[in-house]
Design a protein around this nucleic acid. Structure first.
Lengths: 350, 350
DNA sequence: GTGAAAGCGCTAACAG
DNA sequence: CTGTTAGCGCTTTCAC
């Protein structure tokens, strides 16, 4: 008792340790450890007493100490190329949901960009021994980075896209894109432009490529022509959608009656700029995207929706289950997508 | 040497420890510790050798072990009410920038909402002994939560708003809002509506209130009437902006020629819905927001811009400086804002 | 400039 | 059911 007072009086900032609790409760630290972690082999009476004492002392176990003792940090890493873009921020929210409901911490690593134009390279040292598992939000990874990832030797899952040799969770991009294009076709469109994402960044960033292929195949299956000058490039941002529209409309010749955008953000850029040019959506131009961005409903954007938050939540759940000893919990899974028809698509007027 | 091999052969997953490096380099662990951390009192020759050995062995210090030994975790916590809203995601990116450039980790705590309608309550136990400092992204905090915050007894700064008794970084909301309203006045508007944020959530969430007050005072200083029916309420989201426009336009009587929105997201909602109603922006209605959201330039939205990323970066810097022993590094500071005139404001037509 | 040794606070056998 | 006893891997005096 005397010792406890002594400690807390000077210690103060160091915080109350398990020893303080043990002393105050008149038990050993081992028992306190069991009690506070809800482990068996503690009598109800002592457990209650310990919990009371711990609460009154404001005891919280040191994560460093237990981490050192157990080899587990109880934090999982989330690797993202961006945090302020819709897909990633939603995914982070989803991961966080699962993590915190299971008392894990989320350590965020923002790489700042894709592939080669990345601010910070991913290296295993930055997360090594700091996290128990890693959730990778989709991005182009260099060979080096992929190697680092595998060297880590901790549970790993990638959300939102396909990475070589890694379990991943994401929508079927081919189907999603096909659905979008077919919606346009069903409406009667024949002159359809494509606004796709970057396909040149890196070898293993295949989402853009798959969506492009879906577009092309659905078009040619329908006996429709894919005009190269209507094939526009963007980087998934609103600004790039805006620029793409400008390029499209500034070139001579016939204009498309519809445009399939690889992301809602690019679709928004197209719509904003169309408005400026006096091009009416959907009367003059139908626009469809992919994602179902938070703003899409308000904008009335027709899209093929996906839920990155749920994808990341599922991925996180798998990771934690794996850590809980459920071997094989982490495995690839296809996430759902859904056509959401709103007001930016309509039959062509001509 | 024999011992090392033994260790690494079975250990494997445990990783290489400082002892392994020490043994392989023929020095003590103390020297390795000094060498890898770049501390003085190590001869250039030994340092080089140790670094080489460490690199070839792939040594990375265990954060738990050094955390336990030093009492520092080298991670700072970021507390946010949301992560997928512009202000917060940008702030997180800013904090991350500073943190990772200084080799700190970012632990994200997403509370999921403001004040009472929050999913997860903030309690000091969730971060206690896990972080060295805390960056709070602006939100309404309950009394309890504020108390917890202070009990934490670690460096703390709030970004984006004012919290009782805490150092904070953010724009001068009064000035920013006044600037926006005055821009409308300068254009010749007299019939100005207000779309403000929630002011009822919590006592200490004063950003909405300050902006409202600025609007009212600038208006009355100009001898203009503030019409109660043009005072609309939102929650900073696009959807709420959209609804506010609908309410405004569905009521009988005169319509405003301009609307000042407390955030760009709400302004976007207004613009989207105005478009649906055939109300032209800016001819029939001028719209101005606050923030300079990523989409605002593409949309052509006139706004009063701020940089949450820079604010959070600065806050983080202060926190780390404080941890580095620079006492008094953490202190309140006003961040800049700037009127950005684009295409959604113009002189009134009537 | 370098090493020995004593912890940091907790967990995990192993006894009892 | 509970206590004892080793560590976990690193840092940090304090000697040398």
């Amino acid at each position: 008792m005397a010792k406890t007072n002594e400690r807390s009086q000077r210690g103060g900032h160091t915080g109350v340790s398990i020893e303080d609790v043990a002393a105050a409760a008149g038990v050993s630290t081992a028992t306190v450890s069991r009690a506070v972690r809800g482990l068996p082999r503690v009598s109800p009476a002592t457990r209650e007493k310990i919990l009371d004492v711990a609460a009154s002392l404001g005891y919280v176990a040191s994560s460093s100490a237990s981490g050192l003792a157990t080899g587990r940090t109880r934090t999982i890493g989330v690797l993202a190329p961006f945090v302020s873009r819709w897909f990633f921020s939603k995914a982070i929210e989803g991961a966080d949901r699962e993590l915190h409901s299971r008392k894990y911490n989320l350590s965020l690593f923002n790489l700042g960009g894709h592939g080669s134009n990345r601010e910070r390279l991913f290296s295993s040292t930055m997360v090594y021994k700091q996290i128990d598992a890693l959730l990778v939000l989709y991005m182009a990874l260099s060979e080096d980075e992929q190697e680092h990832l595998h060297k880590l030797d901790i549970p790993l899952v990638v959300v939102g896209g396909h990475v070589e040799n890694c379990p991943y969770i994401g929508i079927n991009d081919y189907d999603a894109a096909s659905t979008a294009v077919r919606h346009l076709l069903d409406l009667g469109h024949k002159d359809i432009a494509l606004l796709h994402g970057d396909d040149e960044t890196d070898l293993n960033f295949d989402v853009p490529r798959v969506r492009i292929r879906a577009f092309q195949e659905v078009m040619s299956d329908a006996g429709l022509e894919v005009r190269p000058e209507w094939d526009q490039w963007g980087d998934f941002t609103v600004a790039s959608g805006q620029q793409a529209f400008t390029r499209l409309w500034n070139q001579p010749g016939r204009k498309p009656t519809a445009i399939f955008c690889s992301s809602d953000e690019m679709a928004m850029g197209v719509i904003f700029e169309a408005y400026r040019h006096g091009v009416r959506v959907p009367q003059d131009l139908s626009v469809i995207g992919i994602d179902d961005h938070d703003f899409s409903a308000s904008l009335g954007l027709t899209t093929v929706g996906q839920r990155p938050d749920n994808q990341a939540e599922l991925g996180t759940k798998m990771l934690l289950d794996e850590l809980d000893g459920h071997h094989g919990a982490v495995r690839s899974q296809v996430a759902p997508h859904e056509l959401i028809i709103r007001e930016t698509t309509a039959p062509p007027c001509r």
